[in-house]
């Protein structure tokens, strides 16, 4: 099921420290083009910290992060987004005071080109581009299935729709690698099913996905590979079936979740 097998993202001996605390220690893993790779592990294992380092929100204490041949260390988040690496946040994060459509238009920032001078002069090209952006925004909203809410304020959406909007904003930035941090946390099972269906559609577009998620049923269903992190260290890396049987993973994390994932 995985793509052509070429390495998209490579994380090499990445360490992340907060003062004396080491959140991630010498972490090494690759994400291949077109695959869905899940990063799992108990609370505080360092999953979000790894996301933050990859996307430029945290400095790496040591190690290399390379995406499609470009070193990401030290780049600003906005620069990393230009390279096609876009993330969502564990804590729900949208432009709450704006409409759903506005949220997507902001997400489309990199798809627009008009210079400040052209904008101030009100050149026709600016209006043309705006129309094109609105069109694109509608497509994105259609894709995630919240088009009917486009004129609502983001803050007035239901929780499930809000989490869809977050992904829609990220998709608007045209990622080639999408990092999702616990996207279905707090969703009910219908919403989770919808979300999984959408993930399928995203990957069908050739987007590589790096997923952090505690919902093991979902992780085991949709991942090509799973990396398990415990206390900053990778303790297992392999296809879902192997991970489920891995004694260290069961001891450190799966435990009682194991039974559920099997079911």
């Amino acid at each position: 099921m995985s793509g052509d097998g070429k390495t998209a993202l490579s994380v090499d001996r990445l360490s992340i420290r907060f003062g004396g605390l080491t959140a991630v220690e010498s972490m090494t893993f690759d994400v291949r083009e077109g695959e869905v790779l899940s990063l799992i592990g108990p609370n505080g294992a360092g999953k979000t910290s790894a996301f933050n380092a990859i996307t430029g929100y945290l400095p790496a204490a040591s190690g290399e992060i390379v995406y499609r041949g470009v070193r990401l260390n030290g780049l600003k988040p906005s620069r990393i987004a230009v390279l096609g690496v876009v993330r969502t946040f564990q804590k729900t994060s949208v432009f709450a005071g704006r409409t759903v459509l506005d949220n997507i238009l902001i997400g489309l920032h990199l798809q627009s080109r008009q210079s400040v001078l052209a904008i101030i002069l009100g050149l026709p090209s600016v209006a043309r581009e705006e129309r094109r952006l609105v069109e694109q925004a509608r497509e994105v909203l259609n894709f995630v299935g919240i088009e009917s809410h486009k004129d609502k304020l983001a803050s007035s959406l239901a929780y499930g729709e809000l989490r869809m909007l977050e992904v829609a904003v990220a998709l608007a930035a045209r990622p080639t690698l999408l990092l999702l941090d616990e996207p279905v946390a707090g969703m009910n099972s219908t919403e989770t099913m919808n979300f999984m269906a959408m993930l399928g559609r995203i990957r069908a577009r050739g987007v590589t996905i790096l997923l952090v998620e505690h919902d093991m049923k979902m992780v085991m269903r949709i991942s090509d590979r799973v990396v398990c992190l415990n206390q900053g260290h990778i303790i297992a890396d392999g296809p879902p079936a192997d991970i489920q049987r891995h004694p260290d993973v069961i001891r450190a994390y799966l435990g009682e979740r194991h039974a559920r994932a099997q079911g």
Binding site: T55, K76, S78, F89, V94, H109, V169, A172
Partner: peptide
């Protein structure tokens, strides 16, 4: 943070 994640400088 969200703005910079979609490429806004």
């Amino acid at each position: 943070p969200l703005a910079s994640s979609v490429g806004i400088e």
